[in-house]
């Protein structure tokens, strides 16, 4: 049937999660930080689907469905926050948003 070991998917998921985390800490552009968060969410979805397939349990698929719904809500609100930030500060660089500091 499926000759790919489960570890391959889990390792791929771990690598993608680390790339997403790296993007969040390195980049200062709010939109790219937002896209890195999407990469992290997707890597977790991948491990859910892999475990669901290897344990032959549909619960993982249902969980991925809900994660996608929450990610859609998160993206709508997150991009609205970015637009509001741009209206107020004329920037999307999180370095230049330091109202709480001063």
């Amino acid at each position: 049937m499926n000759s790919i070991p489960l570890e391959f998917y889990i390792i791929l998921s771990g690598i993608l999660f680390t790339i997403g985390a790296l993007g969040v800490v390195l980049r200062r552009n709010a939109i790219i930080i937002f896209m890195s968060i999407e990469i992290m969410l997707n890597s977790v979805n991948l491990s859910f689907v892999a475990f669901s397939r290897y344990l032959a349990d549909p619960a993982g698929q249902i969980f991925v469905f809900f994660v996608m719904a929450v990610a859609a809500a998160e993206s709508a609100v997150g991009l609205a926050i970015i637009i509001a930030l741009f209206k107020k500060k004329e920037t999307v660089y999180v370095d230049e948003v330091n109202s709480l500091k001063h």
């Binding site: 499926n2 998917y9 937002f34 997707n42 979805n45 892999a50 859609a72 993206s75 991009l79």
Partner: peptide, 24 residues
């Protein structure tokens, strides 16, 4: 698709590549 999860694969393209990326 290699994990036999066709429904999730279609949903991935519809929701992420379709809706979310259009928004971005």
């Amino acid at each position: 698709l290699t994990l036999q999860s066709q429904f999730i694969a279609v949903l991935q393209i519809l929701v992420y590549a379709g809706a979310i990326m259009v928004l971005v």
